[in-house]
Structure formats: structure tokens, C-alpha cells
Design a protein around this nucleic acid. Sequence first.
DNA 1: GCCCACTAGCTGCATCTCGCATATAGTGTT
DNA 2: AACACTATATGCGAGATGCAGCTAGTGGGC
Lengths: 142, 142
Amino acid sequence: MVPEEQETCCRGAGAMHGPERPCCRRAGGGGGGALVEPAALAALLNRGAHGYDVRRAISELTGGELEVDAGGLYRVLRRLEAEGFVVSAWSEGDSGPQRRDYEITSEGRELAEDWLSHLRERQRVAGLLADVLSAALAPSKV
Amino acid sequence: MVPEEQETCCRGAGAMHGPERPCCRRAGGGGGGALVEPAALAALLNRGAHGYDVRRAISELTGGELEVDAGGLYRVLRRLEAEGFVVSAWSEGDSGPQRRDYEITSEGRELAEDWLSHLRERQRVAGLLADVLSAALAPSKV
DNA sequence: GCCCACTAGCTGCATCTCGCATATAGTGTT
DNA sequence: AACACTATATGCGAGATGCAGCTAGTGGGC
């Protein structure tokens, strides 16, 4: 992993650098849409883990393209638990800082399926709009 | 008065149906990411028009898949003007309610190009995450 | 005359996600 | 002791969106 070229305007879900173009700047909030929650679910589908590990898993599963904020991830995990999509328990006996082990529930699995279709839909709409934009930018090149 | 049929979840940013799943519910804010601005730019690239017409144009260009909120659209247009990406003028002489005609500037065209690559990137990331989710959901079906 | 629908523009308000900074602990290293 | 790394968590502000509501002009039905 050699991230020398950080051209990616949306490294995480909206990291940017150039204060020039608002198009990128506007990725601040929901810029790319909700990504952390589905990413966390995907990581937990593979295997139960604690938050810090989930973060690493997300990075690995996506080839380092999705680096989620740790704070945000913990928030998402707590919320998912409050809504019954994951369960957690303090992992005891280990040395080191306390860890909270998460596991996905059957409801969480259903939620992941919903996310899947949702993401496909989002992908489709983004492509559709991109095509429209592309056509509008180069009408002569039809 | 609680609206019984709240089908609307992400009608604009990605049509959905299930009212239960928070995956859809969370489309409230940045749910599908910024779409109104690029859509407005695409509409104005085709031809200058007033806001209400831009809204119709967006709907038509996307085959009715993207129905943006009128209020939000006006807000976006005003902001785009404040930043120099479009210009507007009150259209006079017409009967009926006052209309503000918008036209895209050369800077707006550049912005649209940025949006294009941004959308392609977003499309790619959404697809990537969808693939990861898909693989995690059906590991046996490799 | 009165009410309503449609076009047209605009403003609040609530909600959601995200990134960055910061606080807390425990453990191991220098 | 100071520092780095793991691990969890909270505070704060920014952006984008949807919904409801307000102003105004025009025209149609009762």
C-alpha cells in the first residue's frame, strides 16, 4: 500500500484537499452517501470482531479505498446495536485495553441485503446522472 | 396527523419501498450524496431556463428517476449563482408569475466536468462496496 | 364574487451522514 | 517518565436533503 498519489477526491467518504472546486468540497457530509454502515455490516458478515478491527477489515476488503473515521465507526456500531442489527459484549480476559466484540444478527444480515440493493441502486443513479452530464457536456460527440 | 403511507424514502436519491429498514430511512440527509447540483448543471447545459423548468428538465433527462425537491433546487441555484457558476435575470414582459431565467457560465461548465468525474468515482465506490457486500452475503456462491 | 388549481420562487425546520479534534485507558518501548 | 499504539467514545460543525408552508399571478368552475 503506497498511497503516494492521493488524488482521490473521496478517499474515505468525502476527504478532500483542494478548497477550489465546490463539487468536491460538498462531499463534506453526505457527499458520497451513507457508506460507513454498509461497510461495517460487510466486515461483520465475514467475521465478528471489535470496532478497531472492523475498521481494518473495511480497509482491506475495499483494497484500501475506503478508510472510515474511527469515531464515526464506533457511533455507527453503537447505533446498529441499539437497533438490534448487531450485538456486542465486552471481551474479557484479554490483556490490553478493553474491547467490545461485535457480532451481526439475523436482522443485521437482512439489513445488509437491503443495503446491497440500495447500493446497486445508488450506483445506477450515479451512472445515469453521469451519462446525462457527459452527454450534455459533449453533445457533438454523440 | 401521521402519514400512513410514507413510501417516500429516497424517491429522489434512489427509489425505495421498504418503510422499515433504516438503510432507506437514512437517506434523509446525504443519503445518496449530492445529486441536485449536478442535475441542475446538466439541465442548464442543455439550455438556459428558469428554475421550475430546470426541475422538469431534470425529470425528463433522467427518465423520471430523479425528482428533485423544488425548494432545494431554488436554494442550489441561488448558491450556484452566488459562486459564479450560473447567472440569472428576471424575465420580464411575460404574463404570469415572475420568472428568473438561469444560464450557465464557463465556470459552471468546468464545474460540471468536475462533477462528472466525481460521479463516476462515486459510482465506482458504490459498486465496489456492493460487490464486497454481495460476496460477504453469499460466500458459498463463489 | 368565491374557492381552487397550477405555475413560480423562496424560506424554515428537522434529519442524516460525515470528518476532525479531543478525551479516556491499558500496554509496551525507550 | 515520555512516547507510541491499541481501543472506545464524545463534541462540534459542515453539507445535503425532504417536507411543510408562505407569497403571488393567472385562469377555471360554481
